[in-house]
Amino acid sequence: MKEIILPDMGEEVKEATISFWHHEEGDKVTKGEDLVEITTEKASFQVEAPVSGVLSKISAGEGEVVKSGQVLGIIEE
């Protein structure tokens, strides 16, 4: 099981918004592919799937404001 954690985007960037998930819960995902897009004040970021597996849980939905260190979802390897 791999938690997808919003990385520390820098001291000054405290939060970000989930723009959209490229997958739904239950979808198979491959390491390196686009998983979720998040937006900060300055830009959008495509977060890659850190491992291959099944996206078993989306913990932070689209439009939700998330903070560094927060779990966005879970992939079962």
Binding site: K2, E3, I4, I5, L6, P7, D8, S19, F20, K31, G32, E37, T39, A43, S44, F45, Q46, V47, E48, P50, V51, G69
Partner: peptide, 20 residues
């Protein structure tokens, strides 16, 4: 997204790192 498609960066999360 409120940004045009070219204002997108990639974030790669290394699997070995516990902090994400």
């Amino acid at each position: 997204s409120r940004f045009p498609p070219w204002i997108v960066k990639r974030l790669s999360l290394a699997p070995s790192d516990k902090k994400g």
